[in-house]
Amino acid sequence: MNKTRTYNDSVHTFGSLWSVAVLLVLMAVPLVFCIRYGAWPTLSAVWTGLVPVAVICYPTAIIEIVAYTPLLGTGGMYLSFATGNISNLKLPCALAAMDTAGVKSNSEEGEVITTIAVATSAIVTTVIMAVFVLALRPFIPKLTDPASVLAPAFRQVMPALFGALGASYFSKHWRISILPIVALTLIVMFAGSIGTGVLIPIGVVIAILGAFAFYKLGWI
């Protein structure tokens, strides 16, 4: 137990240091650009562009941090939020890895598996992006062009990814699954343009409340 605490503490320390370092590097990009070209935008221009996005992004970021904490583990959290693409990549990747390894998210082994999965996924994503952007740039528009033969495959990445990922959960926990799927489908039917970022926390709350109620009723 003591060993794990030491490991966890160390992950927290390094995680915090890396987060601050990444933040500084990120801020340096626009700063260095402005210095080099002497192109300083006015505060009001930055503010006007930032507000409509921030009012959605900031609350979503806080909700995501709270919602993903029990699932991603300490190392997984620091890494996921530094490298991004969490709900569409890092989180499903970590959960699939735990499922295959047969470990639980709140265990010492779960902490190890989620960190390995998120780190590997981050490295692969970074490398794939670098390779495609640098070497294959002339070909990408042809692949992803709406008229390309492969375009339907790219448009259907999400149903394919979450169908494959959800299959084992749905079959194992079908009683818990019905309520959030039906509820969210109804919500989407009435609010067709609702963003996935808003829909996810609603789904998580509905599913947890439903599972708790079913447990109390003795259905699961």
Partner: peptide, 10 residues
């Protein structure tokens, strides 16, 4: 499951 449901509903 709540998280996946968001994408399934979409």
């Amino acid at each position: 499951i709540g998280l996946i449901s968001a994408f399934i509903a979409k």
